Amino acid sequence: MDYIDYYKILGISKDASPDDIKKAYRKLARKHHPDLNPDDKEAVKLFQQINEAHEVLSDPEKRKKYDQYGADWRHAEQFEQARRQQSSGRQEAPFGGRESYSYSSGEEGDFSDFFSSMFGSARGSSGGRSAARFKGQDYRAAVQMKLSEAYQTHQQTFTVNGKNIRITVPAGIEDGQEIRIAGHGAPGANGGPNGDLYITFTIVNDTAFARKGNDLYAHLALDLYKAVLGGEEMIDTITGKVKLTIAPGTQNETTVRLKGKGFPVYKKEGNFGDLYITYRVQLPKHLSEKEIALFKELAKEAENKS
């Protein structure tokens, strides 16, 4: 596997703090996002490396392994096991095999060469040696969608390492959600399985609604007269307008629920969240003399009742 200097990719030092890593990642991800660099294969490749570098360096355990073992950090546990058993002069076959073989320690040199000697072969059924199989590296990609697009199941095509991949994105996918596409990562070593592709979705809200899980939230400005007397209002939902009945004496900040008018439930066709409408009662401005007189009359009536 080719060595990638994750610190160099993000433009940070090896003693960078978690905040430094996050800031560098966000800045570079915005700059090199494929949507901003159409038809630029190098930008796509760099964007994948930026995501890969962030995935490793933002995880304390992965970062520790990467700092110690470089390109071979994914196999750190096997390496540590080999070191512990090295003093006995015997090494168990990797991955739980029954056979064992001798190993004489010498110059370690490059970690990749060391792994090749320690784990690159195991006895085959014919008594010879065959290369051990390793799963390929996982790829990371980011996709940006509008909230109105996430409302419906649709197909999306994007390019990874020069190959077009077409996937079906189920309705209801959430901001920050990650999905796995098996076998679309880097090729495996020595006949091992391909890595996987992980896609992280960023959902941009292009609607007038706030989304919390599968529910949607909105406000409705309601004039004082309709709040007092009741009536009807045509309101927007994410799929169109509906008529809403306002009860007489509706108070400010009253919230009503419209069942099933929210967001689709991910991978549960026909299931939807709810839409919550909160009333914001608006007091009248610039009253005429007649209106002022009427309000004064109402105030006197209220005093008499109390």
Rank of each mutant, 00 (worst) to 15 (best):
R84I: 04
I50W: 00
P248V: 05
N164M: 04
A122I: 13
G273L: 04
Q49D: 14
A171E: 09
E80A: 07
T250N: 04
R84Y: 03
L28T: 06
K243A: 14
G249W: 00
L220N: 08
E107K: 13
P264C: 12
D15P: 05
T237P: 05
A82D: 02
N252H: 11
V56A: 07
R180N: 10
N190Q: 12
G124K: 09
G270Y: 07
P60L: 04
A299S: 09
D40I: 06
V44G: 04
L258T: 03
F119V: 10
T153W: 11
S58F: 12
A43Q: 03
Q91G: 07
D274N: 04
E233M: 09
K23C: 05
Y279D: 00
G270T: 10
A71Q: 13
L197V: 05
K163L: 09
S125Y: 14
Y151P: 07
G240C: 11
G109F: 08
G70C: 02
R280K: 15
I173V: 15
A71L: 13
K146T: 01
S100M: 08
F272S: 04
A24W: 06
K64Y: 15
G185H: 05
S125E: 15
M1H: 14
P34L: 00
P60K: 01
R74W: 09
G249H: 02
Y151G: 07
G162A: 03
G97K: 12
R30S: 13
N37C: 08
N190H: 09
S117I: 10
K146R: 11
A247C: 05
K64M: 05
R30M: 11
S121V: 11
G231F: 13
R257D: 09
F119E: 00
A302H: 05
Y151F: 12
L298D: 11
H219N: 15
Q156K: 15
G96A: 09
Q156L: 11
L294P: 03
D40Y: 10
K163W: 02
R74F: 09
I203P: 02
K22A: 15
G106I: 02
K27F: 13
